[in-house]
Design a protein around this nucleic acid. Structure first.
Lengths: 337, 337
DNA sequence: AGGCATTCTGTAAACGTTTCCAATATCCGA
DNA sequence: TCGGATATTGGAAACGTTTACAGAATGCCT
């Protein structure tokens, strides 16, 4: 396929390049006749603008970037998707930047900034601490989504999240109220993951309030993902065989756990209860359906975009907490053992 | 954060811009002393190259793009991920372009071509027919991954896939050999989806070979996704309640089906058998685990990259078929009704 | 000391846009 | 008929790189 430049189009249409540019950008000061003439040529030869040249020229045009690390976390991907929907038609265009789990996030953001002066970022997922320095260095408005950044002390960061601690406490309460006392916790305190840390606190809050003596060494595992959860159960059972419930910090982990239990000949929920977190679609489709904490993805998405826009217009950063919903599921039952 | 240009760096380091450029691009013709001086400044002020300017300049540098539509299809996302792994360290850099399900793919490819002269594409997923015209118009080497494009007549397209028809036939054979005769088919002949069309043919091959009289109107549904499959079961059961097996064309569909059956009080596999397709991680973690056809993602990824490279170096297009593996699963049992 | 390689560095012209500014054409009222 | 306002259009200078090409410095050999 031939590549035409704006110059070629100008020549073919018998006008100046500046005129073609004006037509392409929908400027009002072009006569209808000229516009038509130019568009005809554009159509005919399938001209496509070169965005490198375009962005090189006016990198000033403000825009915002949504950073998503990893394609595995369906929950975060869903939130990101809803963010772009929310951002449709706003004055500042939003774009999503997917980066690898292991990629250098700072590098990616600096590149976005260098290339196009990204005016603001929405960062999904945890690890506020790690990201603080970066956000401070960039000095651009940022919104942490799904994690509380109110304690970060950053001047340029808002955040929106549920009360993870309270949610996990509520979930643990549910298990304990059903008579469970030996509850494994999966995902707790994973290194550098502040969301999981908050959730872990919540679980501990509940155990403490119920006066349960708890030895983390015996009950807590910190791996994640389907496979990680599966293997965690194997490890837990090396130490204790009398577990009657497993509280996990994501729906995938819960699924890994159910499979692992089932492979050990245990039934869920008759023998062991299991809980998830996030309220993903799969939690409802799994058999048994997973009791979970549903995060209001649409609201988180909407709030994140709104908070960023506020800051872009000079507003102060704010930290918003949205409500979660406890979802019933077939994966929980009364403790019988 | 301040934005520095290569010019600023040159000034601060007391050298010419061309020297900085050479250092940045690792050219050999720079003295060690100068290189160090420049790098110090780069480090100190956190200079980041502007890629727009870079790519604007030498758009000639050949590269290849992997196009992935939609983030929902985990199977395709996995394959894409493995492709980039395969492509690490090759002379031609590969990049992945994620586009929305509904987005204009042609537009995206033309943009890639206009911006950087993409020298080749790998297209994942079905819809060869729709894409033919586009591939022809672009005239750039393309590889269709996971779908057979040998019948397209394109001069510039290779393809790599399993024999979908044979795989589905084998799967249906398994069901029929277990005594099932009333088998619903989900995903069959979805409009414009050639992969599903091939699989549908395979299912019909098997039914025919087993001499089973089959009325598609009663047994076949063409929606997909978790939710679509769930609803398809509801529709099927409006017509027939005596189904003993459901053959689906993806693992997600199988999961939606199991959930739907279970919600009707039917057990899988005791009352109804269910089969999936693709061999995704979730199929193995589901309870019951889903009997499925495992596609060799690594091999498909590797072959796709290899085929594209071949064509980039002037080779003829080829159409490669790779082997699938039938995966056992708890979701199948003998027909008893 | 002069000539010639051998390194290294600087100048300037691209790449394809956008946009400021000036130039031209058109129209209106006096 | 003219002055001036108003619509259009064109010319040319950026934007931040890369890369020929030419130039300067150094070292070595005669």
């Amino acid at each position: 396929m031939e590549i035409y430049t704006i110059r070629d189009v100008a020549r073919k249409a018998g006008v100046a390049v500046s005129t073609v540019s004006r037509v392409l950008n929908g400027r009002p000061d072009v006569s209808e006749e000229t516009r038509k003439k130019v568009m005809d040529v554009v159509e005919k030869c399938g001209f496509v603008q070169n965005r490198n040249a375009r962005f090189l020229k006016h990198a000033k045009e403000p825009f915002a970037a949504i950073i998503v690390r990893g394609r595995r976390n369906m929950f975060l991907n869903d939130v990101a998707e809803q963010m772009i929907e929310c951002a449709q038609g706003l004055k500042t265009p939003f774009l999503v930047k997917y980066i690898d789990e292991e990629a250098d996030e700072f590098e990616a953001m600096r590149q976005l900034y260098a290339d196009r002066r990204a005016g603001g970022f929405i960062l999904l997922g945890s690890r506020v601490d790690e990201r603080c320095e970066m956000v401070r260095a960039l000095g651009v408005p940022c919104v942490f989504a799904t994690v509380d950044a109110s304690g970060s002390g950053l001047e340029n960061a808002s955040s929106v999240c549920i009360d993870d601690r309270a949610a996990t406490r509520a979930m643990m309460d549910r298990l304990l109220d059903k008579g469970h006392t030996r509850v494994a916790v999966l995902g707790g305190c994973r290194e550098g993951d502040d969301i999981f840390a908050h959730r872990y606190q919540g679980a501990m809050d509940s155990l403490r309030a119920h006066g349960i003596d708890y030895d983390p060494d015996e009950y807590v595992q910190t791996r994640f993902s389907l496979k990680g959860a599966y293997e965690s159960i194997e490890r837990i059972f090396e130490k204790r065989q009398d577990i009657t419930a497993v509280l996990t910090m994501s729906d995938s982990m819960a699924i890994g756990v159910v499979r692992a239990l089932r492979d050990r000949g245990l039934r869920v929920p008759q023998d062991v209860s299991v809980t998830g977190f996030d309220g993903t679609e799969m939690a409802g489709y799994y058999v048994p359906s997973i009791a979970t904490v549903s995060q209001p993805t649409a609201e988180i998405a909407r709030e994140s975009v709104a908070l960023l826009c506020e800051m872009l217009e000079g507003g102060e950063p704010r930290h918003v907490t949205v409500d979660f919903t406890m979802m019933e599921g077939e994966s929980i039952a009364e403790a019988i053992r």
